[in-house]
Amino acid sequence: MLKARVIPCLDVQGGRVVKGVQFRNLRDAGDPVLAAEAYDAAGADELCFLDIAASHEARRTMLDVVRRTAEACFMPLTVGGGVGGLDDMEALLRAGADKVAMNSAIVRDPSLIDEAAARFGSQCVVAALDAKGLGGGGSWELFTHGGRRRSGVDAVRFAEEAVARGAGEILLTSMDRDGTRAGFEIPLLRAVSGVVSVPVIASGGAGRLDHLVEAVCDGGASAVLVASLFHFGEFRIDEAKARMREAGLPVRL
């Protein structure tokens, strides 16, 4: 039986982890490779790196981080943030990423998804969608450029289109919940997971372990992306999985 996945996410800028990661025995909390190794040992199901600085120089640093991580960790790695097209994607895959998440580029030009899926396979094309609720509820707008720019595009409809074009996974971030620790935005998750056939990764808002359970049970998510909940040492991955298992979810222990 397929397991619900727990995916720690590290924000990386200029080769350094931005939101600190607090692990005992981690001699440099800012080193993404050491943090990745710690999560590998702790039983993470996958890892996600988000490059939050999109300059040319930063991109080359990121490739080096991906290369060194892939050398040390034998687990799936998704990389996103500022991926502009097929060349960026190829460079990341060649460096050792298994999946590449794209956001602004695919909202600007959705046909990029078709090209990426045809060239590299759907299984490595992740559509990363940042959604913000519109007044009245029940509908969400996509934002791009790290949440700074409105797109005018309906999030649920775009998710459907992205999958039709060949995206193999949706990484769905609720901008309204991100950083609030108030729980994942279940109506948004349900709206998207209800219209697509591919796995949906829930992101934004985890503050308690029960929230992870809700994302899967109530939101229809196949995986949960978690940052601060783990980084600050508040909870461990095995505790999160134990809680999910208690709730009847299949997890890898």
Partner: peptide, 8 residues
């Protein structure tokens, strides 16, 4: 869901 993605 398809792709079958994850640990089994």
């Amino acid at each position: 869901r398809i792709p079958h993605m994850g640990w089994n």
